[in-house]
């Protein structure tokens, strides 16, 4: 029964991957077009690119490691 379950870490990996991809892509768009949201500070640091990229990478690692049918971590 346990073997058929999706581990929580897979859900987390999925969410991080989706969020990371969305934020990273928007960060790239901002950097290319220069269209930054009004009032936001420190836009020159391009936080969405490196923060979104980090979330994306982390999410992909979790997806690969805990995908259903592969991991020993079931709970």
């Amino acid at each position: 029964m346990h073997g058929a379950r999706i581990p929580i870490w897979f859900f987390i990996g999925l969410l991080l991957t989706i969020y990371g991809a969305m934020i990273f892509a928007h960060g790239c768009y901002e950097a290319i077009t220069g269209d930054y949201a009004a009032g936001v500070q420190l836009t020159r640091l391009h936080a969405p690119i490196w923060w979104g990229g980090t979330l994306l990478l982390l999410g992909l690692v979790y997806l690969a490691k805990f995908r259903p049918g592969k991991s020993n971590e079931r709970r």
Binding site: Y19, H26, E30, A37, V40, Q41, L42, A47, P48, G52
Partner: peptide
């Protein structure tokens, strides 16, 4: 948050 987080990051 509003001060530092732009679209997407603010949503997060």
């Amino acid at each position: 948050m509003v001060r530092y987080l732009g679209p997407g990051l603010l949503g997060l």
